[in-house]
Design a protein around this nucleic acid. Structure first.
Lengths: 219, 219
DNA sequence: CCAAAAGTGTTAGGAGTACACCCATGG
DNA sequence: CCATGGGTGTACTCCTAACACTTTTGG
């Protein structure tokens, strides 16, 4: 029985949630798009295999990566019995545009709102990842993983709106963030738009105190 | 590469959360206890393999069963490379005492508070299952899966207390349950204790309305 | 001076928590 | 009649949601 890892890689671009897909150059499903993935090596752990694939496809390391779910229906791969352990990864907006896949010349970021037909059972995997991402937004800091180290409050709100797919109230959003005390304002401003916006940093150490107490991001 | 399923099977007995373990009769880890499990057959899905093992070990079918996480560190099984897809299952109190494992004469329910040393990485798997169970208690109906179709409010509260490992306030517990409107009182009373207690039924249809709205079991 | 995004507080309603006593039954 | 678990309500606090105008900049 063969074991693969497949990785749903998300990023935010232009205030939109996007996912990395590669066009298949060979059968089966030639010409269709698929989630990046590959076989687990004989002496390699599952997480390690996922990190290796992620690095190969995007060039990035040290990003958020988490196991999602395993899919192993007989017949999910016409070539034979393949069990895949699916992962999902988050790449911050400032590192995502560099799509320089080694073997994946045809890699492209797709808005999750307008996906092409996907190979294998990858649509199911992607839906599973989206659901997980939405849920984790509420009780973890995944939202910050999609932004550069410094960001404006409006950018953060856009991340939440893009993933949850609904508008949020600006004042309530900011007040709740303030109560959590996990952001540190910097002296820097983002110019270039209209009125300049203050940049903030996420302070991981402050979040540590909260997570045991069930304090969340209730947006 | 070989693929197995391992199943953490929980039940409630005497107001305590228990898990089914089998004593290994052969090396490796001979004489130690392990979570029930076995190989995935060539033409068998992962869920199907888990259901088959569950049936073999406990004789029960049609119980709550959910995939948990996959474990595949090289070296987790000294016999070779084995990736395991872990599941967790919940058996209601009225069906659990029947431990009649086919090949598992040495199967036994263990209180999760006093576990023996476990074979392989099964301790890690069990901890993972416990954490998942505690979390799902808050936003799903897994609590009801551990009880017979009809139960008293005190029995339900004991399930929550056993899993969360803390005392809950009786009046608050009942008021919140009342607000959810997912229980239907029956005409039946449980006698045999002191004052008879009313039996309730969980109405799954009423829960359906709630789960999209993020209404939970906030105990 | 106009368009566009940044920034800022109050109020009213609902949910959560803490807390103590009477009731029905079996022995 | 007594021991045991079943059953019930209130007051206070805190969180949530709804809601509109002023400020700062670039063009």
């Amino acid at each position: 029985m063969q074991v693969t890892v497949d990785i749903v890689i998300f990023t935010i671009q232009a205030g939109e949630l996007k996912v990395l897909l590669v066009e298949r150059g060979i059968p089966p499903f030639q010409g269709q798009f698929a989630i990046p993935g590959g076989f687990v090596l004989e002496d390699e752990g599952l997480d390690a295999a996922a990190r290796r694939e992620l690095k190969d496809e995007t060039g990035v390391a040290d990003v958020f990566l988490e196991q999602l779910y395993s899919f192993g229906d007989p017949g999910r791969d016409p070539r034979g019995r393949v069990v895949t352990v699916a992962y999902f990864a988050l790449i911050s907006a400032d590192r995502s545009p560099l799509v320089a896949g080694s073997d994946a010349a045809a890699a492209r970021w797709w808005p999750v709102r307008e996906l092409p037909e996907l190979a294998f059972d990858h649509r199911k995997i992607l839906d599973c990842a989206l659901e997980r991402l939405r849920n984790k937004l509420e009780y973890t800091t995944v939202g910050f993983q999609l932004l550069p180290a410094r960001f404006t409050l409006s950018e953060l709100q856009q991340v939440y709106e893009a993933i949850l797919n609904k508008k949020l109230d600006k004042r309530n959003f900011r007040r709740k963030l303030g109560l959590l005390k996990v952001l540190r304002p910097t002296r820097e401003l983002r110019r270039g738009g209209r009125r300049p916006a203050r940049l903030y940093e996420f302070v991981a150490a402050r979040f540590e105190r909260l997570k045991d107490k069930g304090i969340l991001f209730p947006f």
